[in-house]
Each structure stands twice: as structure tokens, then as C-alpha cells.
Design a protein around this nucleic acid. Sequence first.
DNA 1: AAGATTGCCAACCGCATATTA
DNA 2: GTAATATGCGGTTGGCAATCT
Length: 356
Amino acid sequence: MGRSPCCEKIGLKKGPWTPEEDQKLLAYIEEHGHGSWRALPAKAGLQRCGKSCRLRWTNYLRPDIKRGKFSLQEEQTIIQLHALLGNRWSAIATHLPKRTDNEIKNYWNTHLKKRLAKMGIDPVTHKAINGALTGTADDKSAKAAASLSHMAQWESARLEAEARLARESKMQTSVSSPTPFHSQPNNIPVSASSPCLDVLHALQGQRVDIESPTSTLTFTGSKSGMMATPRTNIPEISESNSVMWHQRSDELDVEESNWQFLRKQQGMVLEGKEREENLIGCEEPWFTGMAGVGAGFTGMLLDGSTVYDTSECWGESNNVQNEHNSQASDEEDKNYWNGILGIVNSEVPLQSSSLL
DNA sequence: AAGATTGCCAACCGCATATTA
DNA sequence: GTAATATGCGGTTGGCAATCT
């Protein structure tokens, strides 16, 4: 529908924020919460539109924002998620604690995209340009693309469901009046078993606190419906290490059928200890436990036919050929992710992973 | 030393969607 | 059901700093 007219008002200041303006905005939100962004500038004594205030807060002033250089792990996460989700920066940001969508977007555009292009990989499609990396297109790459597309659709559905649940939760908890930021149950946005976030859990093989500054999801602690009825998403690793998920059937029956499609495509699902063992395999500290993910996506990209070789993990010798992998077709398929891994590995100083 | 070029990122713009009246 | 309003998202830009010539 119609656009907000607030930014079209004459007399509102634009451009860089001054320390005084920052202080006013910060002080107001800390005391009253942001409430209605539209009404905030007048109440806070700012000659800005609400939109500008919201942006300043979410991208800069929020206390739970991590600034500085991206770690190696963050870089890989961005690349992987971009391959999965495309330019959905807010969705990607939900998987990167303390990073804003704007920051991720900027980093992608100024660093990662260039690196991919330099590697001969199309940053949009994540496919080799002119077969530079993985050879010419064939049935496998077509199937991989289809799988990836399907996965992206699935992730979209998950995000929508997540947003819907958040809304419902919000309604149930009767959050009718804005809560001052400092008095919220969690200054840090919650990581209450959000299904979407579980993707990253699988990526990292461990539970992590997701604190996306830009996440639009707001749960309200123990009163929240989300907390009362935690979702039980259980990752499963297929034979090709693809990550599978069990959803609450009462919510996501349709989505479940999508996964069955994938299961069918990917092969049998491992259970219990066997699954856990498949999550282990990479020596690289940060990658430990990630085999299920990198490998999962890799598996999909390779049509699930190639077992991921953990010796090719990020940080390991990407150029070292796997002596045990003698099949020409496997070599031809030298998976896309290895190429991606090599990009950053070859251009980013190792110490970058220990920054921040 | 100075002008040109490039890289970076905060902030803006406009569209899409959700919410409200 | 419709229109107005509010908010969120992603693309783009402007300006500053660093680097190059």
C-alpha cells in the first residue's frame, strides 16, 4: 500500500548522525523503548524521520552489535547461506549473531562477491562460470541446482512460519505497550529454539545464541508461546550428510512433505550415534562439527552421490588432492564448496579468524 | 605534493508487506 | 473490502579515507 510519508516531510535532517543525536536516541530508547518509530523523533527531540531513527538504532546504536572484521567462520556462513537464500540479507543475518543485515550486505558486496568472481564463480548463482571450477553443466549440476532451489524454498517457508509464530506469540503475551530496552527480559533477542536458527546449529554442530540485531523476531521470555511449546527440530544427516529436520507435525505438515521429497532424493537417513558420528570429521577447530553442513550442502550440490571428504575442510589444504578419490567424475565434481572455501582461505590471513 | 582512482560503509530511497481504521 | 499508515527489506548512493599514478 502507500508509502510512509514521514521521510517526505520538509525540515527533517538527513545525512550522518551527530554524537548528540545518537545520545538523544539512545537515551530515549533506553528509557522508553522505541515504541512507534514514527512518533519517536518528536518525543526524543530529534529532527529525523522515524525510519532514519530505526535504521540508526538497528544498524549502529544497539548494544548487542558486534563490529569489526568478519571472522573466517562468519565469512563461510555468509557464503553458504547466500548460496541457499540469495540476497535475503535479513534472513542471513538471523544466522550471524550480532551482525546486521546492512553490514552483511556491505561485506558481501565489497569482499565476498569479488572473491567469488575472481575464482570464476558466479556470485549470483554460485555456479562456475564457463565451467571454470566444476566443469561444464550436466545432469548433476542441474539436479544440484534443483535441490538447492528446493532447499531455498523450504527455508523461505520456515522463515514465514517463524515470523507467523512470532506474531502469534507476541499477541498472546499482550505486549501492548513498548517496553524500555533495558528492562526487557532479554536485552539479547532470544534464541528459543527457533526453527530457522536451527539451520545454523546444524552448520556449526552446536547450540549457539542467535542474537541478530536486525531480527524482526521478538519473543518475550517465559511467557512466550515459543517458550511454552518449544519446537523440536532434530537434525538428521543423510547418507550424503545432508541435514534433515523433524518439524512439529501440527504446524508444518506441508513442509514435512517437502523434506520427504529431499529424503527421497538424498537417500536414507542416519539415526542416533551414527548420525552423531557423521557430524564429526574435520580437524579444523572452527569447522569441527560442521561437516554435516558443509557436507550437507555439498552433498546436495553433488546430487548426494559423493561422500564429503573432510580433509578438504576450510583451512585445510584445498589444493591437496584426495588420493583415495580416484574417480575422474568425482574430480570433475570437485565440489563447489571446496572452491568457495579456497577463496577465503587463499586470500584471508589466518589471524582473521581470531579477530574480534 | 597533488590529483585521480578505488574501496568502504553509513545512510537513504523506494517497494513490499503487515497492520489498523 | 478498501484505503491509510507503519514497518521491514534490499538496492543504491554519497562522502570519506586510503591508495595509486
